[in-house]
Design a protein around this nucleic acid. Structure first.
Lengths: 208, 208
DNA sequence: AAAATAAGAGTACATTGTACTCTTAATCTT
DNA sequence: AAGATTAAGAGTACAATGTACTCTTATTTT
């Protein structure tokens, strides 16, 4: 009977994503998204409960496999390490392809169904590999901690980023190893760094 | 010639910490801190450039070894794995002792000198163990990624937390392994979980 | 054509960070 | 001892934000 809705959650999320893309993460506001859609600010509240839920929609959009999120099918690979690597690399790729969304992703990923599906997929890889009970739980949480820790590190730590700037501004004599590491790290691409670290983590889990 | 300052950065940080402790992380505001100190809001700006710097002061205070932050002396231990474990555990302990400060810690740790010192200490442990160049850089970043990923996970994921609530609200049939893992994880204390994961990571780094 | 109902617009307010200006207290000079 | 000096601190004001609440309007069913 009533007037039909003009938006879908996906449309809303895309508008928010466009705003973030144009104005950066801090440019996201209810007003900006409403303007992007040519609507009144308060009209958004017909679709989301508030800003938090809007952010959750963005995260959901980015993580949606149908929209470029991580594909969860790793059936082809032979051993579980390769399968887990594939899942982790895809998650990492998604998180770093949209750098402006990374903070949102880190903060709200746990509320996204796609994120849960990814977790379930990783767990099933571990289960197939024979992990069970507490050992599986630990292995799982360790991988997840590494993946999202690395994403966060990469977000803060790129060469032009705030982290490196702070280090560069310090007396290098007090932090010789940190300076040296920053130099070494400059030669490694973020993707290669992630992969190398991931191999170490998975190796530690794999060894009996 | 002028009137002397009535505050030190430490005093300011302590007031901010008190506010966070009483009102939670979202309760931190320039006004609240000023009230806590019995000053006008704008007077704070004689001591900090803005809110960001105030947050940095809080992080610095929490990470200060002289105030309960991670002690960096691990000379006693025999092998590098034990030393690295000690450093990681201390960092984890600090980060989780002040749960209300955890978000700040994760966001601004890189700007704190104490955090850099911790990094330098960890690197020197790795260097003594014979790691150098890219291998050392990777090992270092891997450990750091795990430590702060785990802190973040623990912050979001405790039983009463938002993460678990979201999982519990879902159709358990779609996420059998996730549900099972949540059950297994409930038996493990956060500290034990952190330590177990850390052992896996360090083992992966140690194996030739 | 009219009624019904949810969609969407508009207004208003509390909360925040902070720019700017004014007042005041402590020190140094004479 | 008194005044000059200078930064400390108070006060005011404003822009940006999230959102509660009310009013209007478009669309579908009767």
């Amino acid at each position: 009977m009533p007037r039909p809705r003009s938006l879908t959650p996906t449309l809303l999320a895309k508008a928010a994503l466009a705003v973030i893309g144009r104005e950066g993460p801090d440019g996201l506001s209810m007003r900006a998204v409403a303007d992007e859609l040519g609507m009144g600010t308060m009209s958004l509240y017909r679709y989301v409960q508030g800003r938090e839920q809007l952010e959750a929609l963005v995260v959901d959009l980015v993580l949606d496999p149908a929209q470029g999120g991580p594909d969860l099918d790793v059936g082809r690979r032979k051993n579980w390490v390769d399968k887990a690597t594939e899942l982790a690399v895809r998650a990492h790729a998604v998180a770093t392809t949209h750098p402006a969304v990374t903070p949102l992703l880190l903060a709200r990923r746990h509320a996204s169904i796609h994120s849960l599906r990814w977790g379930e997929a990783l767990l099933s890889v571990l289960a197939e590999a024979g992990f069970a009970g507490e050992r599986r739980a630990i292995a799982f949480r360790t991988i997840v901690a590494y993946v999202f820790g690395a994403v966060q590190l990469q977000h803060l730590g790129p060469l032009g980023g705030e982290g490196t700037a702070a280090i560069a501004a310090l007396p290098p004599d007090d932090f010789p190893l940190l300076a040296d590491t920053a130099r070494s790290a400059r030669k490694i691409s973020p993707d290669a760094e992630f992969l190398s670290g991931l191999r170490l983590v998975l190796r530690g889990i794999a060894v009996k």
